[in-house]
Design a protein around this nucleic acid. Structure first.
Lengths: 239, 239
DNA sequence: AAGTGGTCTAGACCACCGA
DNA sequence: CGGTGGTCTAGACCACTTT
């Protein structure tokens, strides 16, 4: 791991452990240079990471103010798979059920979204996520089989992301997501415990590998009362 | 404006104008150094900005691949005020109506959210956003009067953000946002054209100045069929 | 072998704040 | 006036890809 990344992790840990308390300042860049025995640039890279993830606020001529991370708590932002979410938040009894698993030429709409040839194959997988006995999320993944081969129902029941990253060693790099609200279809109603709701929060996501290959298009529908998305954002300067 | 920021803007513009087409590579860092007559570090800072906002994907030992920005199109992400949104997206006939404007000691819930003394004053403002003749967004701002003085109903009808940044010269720096779905209250139903919906998308936002002062807590409720949020996110490496 | 991006270092100047 | 963070430069080595 790169040095600046180690320093970032170290500082992040110390902020989370309140070794550096919210409202106080981190040691100055000069002092950090000595503490970590590295150059200013390396220190600054670490601080930039901390700032962009909301741990500190840099104030000119004053220092790096530690922010109150208590409020962050539950970052669903970024690229997080269900399994990771499940592990990080302490949810009880979550379960994944594969509702359907197809390996086929996808319809033209999906072909287009995945930039595929008409002859190409794709996996089309529907999975129901059950949390605390309630079926509240329906995930629909369309995965280009030319990029991600060898998927099975067993893998889908566990974690597709884990398979891609750990088995195939393919680095997942970035995604474009869109959040809207849609009316629940009859199928949605059948597969999920809708508890009287007729709307679902719909998260559409285009997922890319490091070489910018689009490998997966996902539609994830959430029962409205169980959906929560949090974000930390900085205002762009100098517009 | 800083040099690296200028280069960023220049490259961004050229990507948007398709001078650098999606799928091709930018000139290498070495070439960019010559083009912009600057050091490698400066170039790299610009490229980092482009990468983090989704314009390029850096590939080791290959170059900076230009991504298809067509898909980004409508970035509601980040810290965008309604007025800016209105100006950037070409919406017709949008209008803001101030439904209520109070200057008072806020109730204890709001006091707590804004970290205020019990003796402190706050502005509590409700605004209805009308787009194409439909009243679809209800904004509720609570603003610490000790930090942001002198607000009036006229300013609220225009743009509070503009007042803060341009009149008071206070730099708005970052926010924490949370998106959930809530049931519409009776008041919501009265103030908005609900078109049969009984749910609203609720965006809660804590807004901070550059010195990390929390100056504003906003609850923005959107009619579900008119809500859309898009995000570009990168997966964290090395966890 | 040449070129790429990733990382790290050392040093410089600036504007501004607070003592 | 000393210390701070913001910016910029010049140079170095690495691992790897492409030719």
């Amino acid at each position: 791991m790169a040095k600046y990344h180690e320093i970032y992790e170290d500082l992040k840990g110390k902020i989370e452990e309140k070794e550096y308390a919210a409202g106080t300042y981190l040691p100055s860049e000069n002092e950090l240079m000595k503490i970590y025995e590295s150059s200013r640039d390396t220190i600054r890279k670490s601080l930039e990471l901390l700032a962009s993830s909301g741990y500190i606020q840099k104030e000119k001529r004053k220092g790096s103010l530690v922010l109150d991370v208590g409020l962050i708590s539950f970052p669903v932002s970024g690229l997080t798979s269900f399994k990771e979410l499940e592990q990080s938040s302490h949810r009880y009894h979550s379960k994944t059920e594969v509702a359907s698993f197809l390996y086929q030429h996808p319809d033209s709409r999906i072909q287009k979204k995945l930039n595929m040839d008409p002859e190409g194959y794709a996996f089309s997988i529907k999975r129901v996520r059950e949390i605390d006995g309630e079926r509240i999320i329906l995930d629909e993944d369309h995965i280009n089989a030319a990029v991600i081969p060898g998927l099975t129902e067993e893998i889908a029941a566990d974690s597709i992301y884990e398979y891609i990253e750990n088995e195939l060693k393919l680095p997942i790099a970035f995604a474009r997501k869109e959040i809207t609200v849609v009316r629940a279809s009859e199928e949605d109603q059948r597969l999920l415990d809708m508890k009287g709701y007729d709307l679902l929060v719909c998260v559409k996501s285009y997922n890319f590998l490091e070489d910018a290959t689009l490998f997966c298009y996902t539609v994830s529908k959430h029962r409205p009362d169980k959906f929560r998305f949090v974000e930390f954002s900085r205002r762009e300067k100098e517009r």
